[in-house]
Design a protein around this nucleic acid. Structure first.
Lengths: 325, 325
DNA sequence: TATGGCTTGGACAACGTTGTCACAATAGCG
DNA sequence: CGCTATTGTGACAACGTTGTCCAAGCCATA
């Protein structure tokens, strides 16, 4: 900037004024400065700028589990879009469900002085963020609640959605329902399982733990679990898969076997409509989830100091798929 | 930091040494400093740190077209993973195919002094980045080449893939092939179309522009285009869809009509295997594309000043899908 | 004992920017 | 004509950190 000033034969401050579009600079000087900027290829250093002016870096952090997963990709896309509306850049990092890594990444983002944080929690203790919150960094948790920290949160109605879906299965007469889940350690899985139990109990359907498979991490594992259950003496007549990765594997296996078991899946997905096997899904609006969280965050960044809020978004039961022949 | 120094009764510099794990500090003093850091909730300001120390911000920028698209989400995930291996954060932004926005976002990233840039170009003139390149910011372009700028580039063999795929259709006896593409303005689409022509010409199959539809932006448009073409007096016996969004719509329409047209699609996708309609896809390894680009970028950041390189990754013809009955 | 090296701590400036303040030049007023 | 506003410009310090340099203390060696 000093070089630009010298070249344009003005003071440092005038250059600063020009690059910040500040008023009260003669048009002629503006010309000279802009010419010098162009000639020297000067580019403002935003690091120094936000260091000096203090408050804002025009950056927010987004912490998710895994970027490549379409659910999180949708969240990231929506967050980026809303960030852009506020002329803000987005730093994205994946925790890969590792609390230690989550902690390190969040600390790093804070050290970079992000204006706010959007977090899909991996761990269950976020008290280490308390100092940061008190220091004034706004943060909003989404999809899962923070642990040990009172903070803004946007959730889905996991329990209600599972309740409605499983109730439909029960009402259709199913009494042996195979349930497949990723990991009981994850909040959303626990909620969905609870919702299923909420539907089974009042209908007098026993909750048979032999029909519940934890640790189903990918489509192949889901297919194997389905195969095993179907080979039991009294196989399930319906399956409830607790996320879309699992649903994929279940569809494949049921289709392969020409089974006529009913299928209920949590999470809708793009290609559900192309499924060769009929299925009902518990759908929700991922974009809305991200939008609600991001907009709340920017309200906080804008100075909203009201009491932390929890928003729960509804789910919807959708029947999809091509009927089997 | 001054407060921490006061509290620990040491000098500012000693605190700096401790938080940077620098050697030559008495263990007792380290204790005192860390205690003060904890009590005061001190957190290093990385902005100031990289401002002072000059060179590195431990941040790279990734510019893509649209985060929520699985192709770009995969790229982002891979880039984030490799960035993490280098203890680097990732700033992601979407250009939404808008050259003006691309320019603004890249400028902004440069102003934030990213250590390097990973760019899927939207525009066709990137000469505005020349100053930045000369200033020493490494950048690698992927999926599409940069315009008016000699730079590292990682591409797919779009033309070769399309050639191989269409050749297979021609060899199977197809002479009327409907081709659907997003936008002729996009580099990859042009290359794929050229590849198709490369296969048609030597086989003596005329290139009938009435069988080529540009501007097919979403599955619904693809379905409509297929419907129209099939209602012509001499309908195509095969379709070549130039990206996976289009392929989805084509599958749906062909399946709905019970058509027996052959289908070739550029881009593989997760659920291709579940397609109710048989299809052949031109597949490639998106992760490999991103990995090659990111690793090249970090080699540049690490000081590799060799001549800019262009890497072209191969594609593969894969037959997928459930045969129609 | 003198000399030199090594370890440890501290003073100071600098990174690139902007806020504060002061001053100069011009215009408007009585 | 002198006075105050108003506008345009610049000197300077400060943001939070770290590199450079120096000094003091200690030990080992000559």
């Amino acid at each position: 900037m000093t070089d630009v000033a010298a070249r344009a034969k003005v003071s440092l401050k005038t250059v600063s004024r020009v690059v910040n579009n500040a008023p009260h600079v003669q048009p002629e000087l503006v010309e000279r400065v802009l010419a010098a900027v162009a000639e020297l290829g000067f580019r403002r250093n935003l690091l120094a700028s936000s260091l000096r002016s203090g408050q804002t870096t025009a950056t927010i952090g987004l912490l998710i589990e895994e970027i490549a997963n379409p659910f999180y990709a949708t969240i990231a896309g929506t967050a980026a879009e809303i960030a852009r509306q506020h002329d803000t850049m987005l730093i994205i990092a994946s925790s890969e469900e590792d609390p230690g890594r989550e902690r390190q990444l969040l600390r790093d983002m804070c050290a970079r002085r992000v204006d706010g944080l959007l977090v899909v929690p991996a761990g269950d203790d976020h008290s280490f963020l308390r100092a940061e919150v008190e220091l004034g960094t706004p943060m909003v948790f989404l999809d899962r609640p923070a642990g040990g920290l009172l903070a803004d949160t946007v959730l889905l109605d996991n329990r209600g959605g599972a309740l409605a879906g499983v109730r439909r299965l029960v009402e259709a007469g199913h009494r042996r329902i195979g349930i497949l889940l990723d990991s009981i350690g994850v909040y959303t899985m626990r909620e969905r399982l609870d919702g299923a139990q909420d539907a089974l109990a009042p209908a007098g359907v026993p909750y048979d733990t032999r029909l519940v498979r934890d640790g189903v991490r990918d489509p192949a594992a889901a297919a194997r679990a389905v195969a095993e259950m179907l080979e039991r003496p009294d196989p399930p007549t319906a399956f409830f898969s607790l996320n879309n990765r699992i649903t994929l594997g279940v569809i494949e296996e049921l289709h392969r076997r020409g089974s006529d078991a009913a299928l209920l899946g949590f999470d809708d997905f793009d290609m559900a409509r192309l499924s060769p096997y009929p299925l009902t899904v518990i759908a929700y609006d991922t974009r809305e989830l991200a939008r609600a969280a991001a907009e709340l965050l920017f309200r906080r960044i804008g100075g909203d100091r009201s009491w932390p809020r929890t928003i729960v978004l509804p789910t919807e039961l959708v029947t999809r798929g091509v009927p089997p022949r």
